[in-house]
C-alpha cells in the first residue's frame, strides 16, 4: 500500500516537475483508476471507523479522488446547452457547487463499501485516443456485478474523469433534465442558488434522511 502510494506520489511529482512530458509517460487511464480504487478500498478496509465518520470520508474523497476529476467538464456535461450561456464567473461557481455535490455523493457511496472485489477490465483504446472509457466491475457476493465506467479525457495534467456511469446510468446526463428545468424557471443564477442550497443542507425532506438507519445524526451538521 505504501509502495503504491509512493508510486502515485512519484507520478504526480513527475507531472509537476516536468509539465512538458510526452503523452506516453502519463499514468495510463486504466492504471490510474486501478491505483486510486485499490488505494481507497484499502484505506476503507483498514480504518473501520472511517465509514461512519462523514468528515473523514469527505477528506478522503477530497485527497484521493477529487484530483483525478475534471469538474469543469463534468459540470458542462451536466448543465448541457445552458453551459454556453453562462458567464465565466457563473461557470466557475457552477463547477464549484457541482464539485461539492459530487464529493458529498461520493462520500455517501463509499460509506456503503463492504469489502467488495473489483474486476478491472482491460482498456480498449489506441494510444492516440484522448477520450477513453475505463470499465470496472464491482463484484459483490450473491449479487450481480455492478458496472462502473469512467469516461476520461486527456489533459496536460494527466487523465481526468469527466463522467461516471454506474450500471449504465450516466451521472452527468442524469442531472441534465433537472438542471435545465431549473435554468428554464430561474436562470443560471437560480441553478447556482439551488445547488448551493442543496450543498448547505437545506433539505427538502429532513425527516427522510434522518430516518436513514446508517446516517448519523451528525450528518446534518456536516452539511453546514
Amino acid at each position: 500500500m505504501f509502495a503504491r502510494l509512493l508510486a502515485v506520489a512519484g507520478a504526480v511529482a513527475a507531472f509537476v516537475a516536468a509539465p512538458g512530458l510526452r503523452a506516453q509517460e502519463m499514468v495510463a487511464p486504466d492504471a490510474l483508476v486501478r491505483n486510486v480504487t485499490l488505494e481507497v478500498a484499502d484505506i476503507l478496509r483498514k480504518d473501520k471507523d472511517i465509514q461512519s465518520d462523514r468528515k473523514k470520508l469527505v477528506a478522503l474523497v477530497d485527497a484521493k479522488i477529487v484530483p483525478h476529476f475534471n469538474f469543469t467538464s463534468m459540470t458542462a456535461s451536466a448543465v448541457g446547452a445552458n453551459w454556453a450561456k453562462a458567464t465565466p464567473e457563473q461557470k466557475a461557481k457552477l463547477a464549484d457547487e457541482f464539485r461539492t455535490l459530487m464529493v458529498r455523493t461520493y462520500a455517501s457511496s463509499i460509506a456503503t463499501f463492504r469489502d467488495q472485489k473489483f474486476d478491472f477490465r482491460p482498456l480498449r483504446a489506441s494510444p492516440t485516443d484522448t477520450d477513453v472509457t475505463v470499465n470496472v466491475r464491482v463484484i459483490q457476493p450473491g449479487a450481480q456485478p455492478v458496472k462502473i465506467d469512467y469516461d476520461m479525457e486527456k489533459t496536460p495534467r494527466g487523465w481526468k474523469v469527466w463522467d461516471v456511469r454506474v450500471a449504465d446510468i450516466s451521472l452527468t446526463a442524469n442531472y441534465r433534465t433537472e438542471f435545465s428545468n431549473i435554468v428554464r424557471d430561474s436562470g443560471i443564477d437560480g441553478l447556482i442558488k439551488a445547488l448551493h442550497a442543496k450543498n448547505s443542507g437545506v433539505p427538502d425532506k429532513p425527516a427522510a434522511s434522518a430516518a436513514a438507519p446508517e446516517a448519523p445524526a451528525s450528518e446534518m451538521k456536516k452539511k453546514r
Binding site: A76, G80, D131, N181
Partner: peptide, 30 residues
C-alpha cells in the same frame, strides 16, 4: 428540454469540453 438550443450553441459547448474523439463515444447522449 432545450428547444432553443442551436447547433452553434451545441458546438460551442462541445468545444468547451475539449472532447472531440469519436472513437470513445461519450455517454452523455444516453
Amino acid at each position: 428540454d432545450a428547444p432553443t438550443a442551436t447547433p452553434g450553441v451545441a458546438r460551442m459547448q462541445a468545444a468547451d469540453q475539449v472532447l472531440e474523439a469519436p472513437a470513445a463515444t461519450p455517454p452523455a447522449v444516453l
